[in-house]
């Protein structure tokens, strides 16, 4: 159930250039939040900046009753978040949206993350590994130093491969190159993806060519996060070949790869 919660910051520290991890004591989010869901964060005590910021659940720790948010400082809101000290209490709305799904019949899965899109895949990998699935993780970053969460995935027991744009670590090129190879080498039951739009589009294309089902998490500017403002829409195919607008915050943020229409 969606709730407005006040949560104490247990930790808020940089983990790579521009990237921060904030851990919050938040019982209801920890017990009810699912991988792929998100929260709307009130980043300041007043109305400046005006909007809350949508941030995905990065780690969900039921035992400790904490959740973590991994975010990249890209503007005013995330900068304020990064400056908020440990011990402070912040307001969040959540858990929001529809997260990733999986079924018992899926045995081998791949997670494709680009940049900050890697964040929700950590919680997802955790759940999938708990469910005894074989989890391949493909990570893309601009440079070695901007790569996040590699150790988290390795320590959980996932099989990790990395690509960097500048070749400073792992494969020199796109993370989707790695997916192409993995599809060739391993029989995948499901591919999960979260990252920049060009990456998402390529993941959808590759999985469709190989007839592998795929779930993509989309990013859009959001007003309310609960489906009221209808500001964060994406185009979804209808049966008659036309499209309808769906709310990323409420109908998503996770969609089936084949249902989303991308404007080229």
């Amino acid at each position: 159930m969606i709730k407005s919660v006040k949560a104490e910051i247990v930790e808020n520290k940089p983990i790579a250039p521009e990237f921060f991890r904030m851990t919050l004591k938040a019982e209801t989010l920890a017990s009810e939040g699912l991988p792929g869901q998100f929260v709307m964060v009130k980043v300041s005590p007043n109305l400046e900046p005006f909007l809350r910021r949508p941030i995905s659940l990065h780690q969900i720790n039921r035992e400790e009753a904490t959740v973590s948010l991994l975010y990249q400082v890209v503007g005013k809101g995330t900068r304020l978040m990064s400056e908020t000290q440990k011990g402070k209490v912040i307001e969040l709305l959540g858990p929001l949206g529809k997260g990733f799904t999986w079924s018992d019949s899926d045995r081998v899965v791949a997670l494709v993350g680009g940049g900050c899109g890697t964040a929700p895949l950590v919680a997802l990998a955790h759940s999938l590994l708990e469910d005894k699935k074989e989890v391949h993780v493909l990570l893309g970053a601009q440079t070695k130093e901007k790569l996040v969460c590699e150790e988290d995935f390795i320590s959980m027991g996932a099989k990790v491969k990395v690509a960097t744009d500048d070749g400073s670590y792992g494969h020199h090129g796109f993370v989707t190159d790695l997916l192409k190879n993995l599809i060739h080498d391993v029989a995948l039951d499901m591919v999960y993806s979260c990252g920049p739009l060009p990456m998402t589009k390529e993941v959808v294309k590759l999985t469709q060519e190989a007839s592998i089902p795929c779930q993509i998490s989309l990013e859009e500017r959001m007003g309310c996060g609960i489906g009221a403002c209808i500001g964060c829409v994406c185009k979804v195919r209808t049966k008659d070949g036309a499209f309808t607008y769906k709310k990323v915050c409420k109908d998503g943020p996770v969609f089936k790869g084949e249902e989303v229409m991308f404007d080229d």
Binding site: L47, E48, P49, F50, L51, E220, R221, M222, G223, C229, I230, G231, C232, V233, C234, Y245, D263
Partner: peptide, 12 residues
């Protein structure tokens, strides 16, 4: 068509 929102100073 999206994008449908942009933040403004003290507003939307």
């Amino acid at each position: 068509p999206p994008p449908r929102l942009a933040e403004a100073a003290a507003g939307l």
